[in-house]
Simulated assay, not measured.
Amino acid sequence: MPTSPVTVDPRLLRAFLAVAEELHFTRAAARLYVAQQALSRDVRRLERELRAELFLRTTRQVTLTPDGERLVPYARRVLDAQDELLAAFGRARPLLVDLNFSGLLTGHRVLVRARELAPEQELLARYESGLTGAAVELLAGRLDASFGRFAGLAPALRAGLEQQPVRYEPMTIALPEEHPLARLTAVPLAALAGETVYAGAGNPRTPEWTDLAHRLFEGRGIQVAPAAPPAVGYEEFQRIMARTGHPILAVVDSPPLPGMVLRPLVDPVPLSPVSLVWRRGLAHPGVEALRRASAEVAAREGWLRRPMDGWIPAADEKVMNSHN
């Protein structure tokens, strides 16, 4: 007598994949906005249906079994296909868009326009603080799109992502109000010789920004400030920066800091290259809306026109020209 074919509910695969990526049931349940008990029940049901043990559980840790490791790529392909199917019929899930942190205008303005272009889609903002940190989340499926310096990512991260240039954003320097250079309307790079400037050193989420600072300061007598205590939230960042007293490398649209002034950098004008970045192969109408919005806003604002005296590393120039 023939047996009935086995069908696997995609919800069970999504539960499995969350635990496989977090290796922690509590964190996985929080990520999926479900009770831990319900998540455990779904994983056990999947194990029964597949007749395979997927996790080894102890009081201290959760690890994948060989069958669990074998299931991971299949689960990802099934869930990607489901997303593509739903998108084709106008039922796409919400798209999670990282804007780095609140107050940066580039990603925010693109997101606003994308929502206008695709009002039927739910585009939800997230704040991951740096593209390297966001890239890990993108590849794991916990985010869908982000903004930042694509050339600054490790090759292993870039391999799983796609990008579209959005802006050459002029870089600035945030100076304490009492700093001698604060009286200038624009600060020549040469005037920063001998200064120690904060550029996120030690922050595991933003090494692409610190690397850009090192490239900019090389040969100019400017030092990158040592790592500061990790700050969670903008208010904590403000407090720590006030204690160090260091100038801060920033971009033209950076939100103001109390007790500091923002001055453009000149001679040359250093540029922060910003791309829209998303997971390779992601099929979602929200991504297409973001790409259209990026192109529209960039064209309207002249974001991809480089100033004659603009500075950018060669690796970034190659990335930013890749879509020309």
Rank of each mutant, 00 (worst) to 15 (best):
Q238C: 15
D211H: 11
R167Y: 05
P180Y: 12
E195Y: 02
R149W: 08
L249S: 06
A314S: 14
H24W: 15
P229I: 12
L212R: 07
L216K: 03
F55E: 00
A114H: 00
L85W: 15
R27L: 15
Q82V: 11
P270F: 09
P229W: 06
R44K: 10
F147S: 12
R158L: 08
A114T: 02
R215G: 02
G141K: 12
A87Y: 01
E47W: 08
P264Y: 08
V277I: 11
G152V: 07
R291I: 04
L249K: 12
H214P: 01
D253F: 04
R205V: 06
V274S: 01
P270C: 08
S146E: 06
F89Q: 10
T7L: 14
P165E: 07
T65D: 02
L50P: 05
E296M: 03
P256D: 13
E137L: 08
G141I: 15
L216Y: 03
V19F: 02
P273S: 09
L304A: 00
T206S: 15
S4D: 15
A228K: 14
V297N: 14
E218T: 15
G68C: 07
P176T: 12
V277F: 01
P229D: 10
A250G: 04
Y74T: 14
Y234A: 09
A201W: 04
L117P: 11
A87R: 01
R183W: 05
P73T: 05
L32K: 10
L46V: 05
T132I: 12
R48N: 08
A193Y: 05
E296C: 04
L96F: 08
A283K: 13
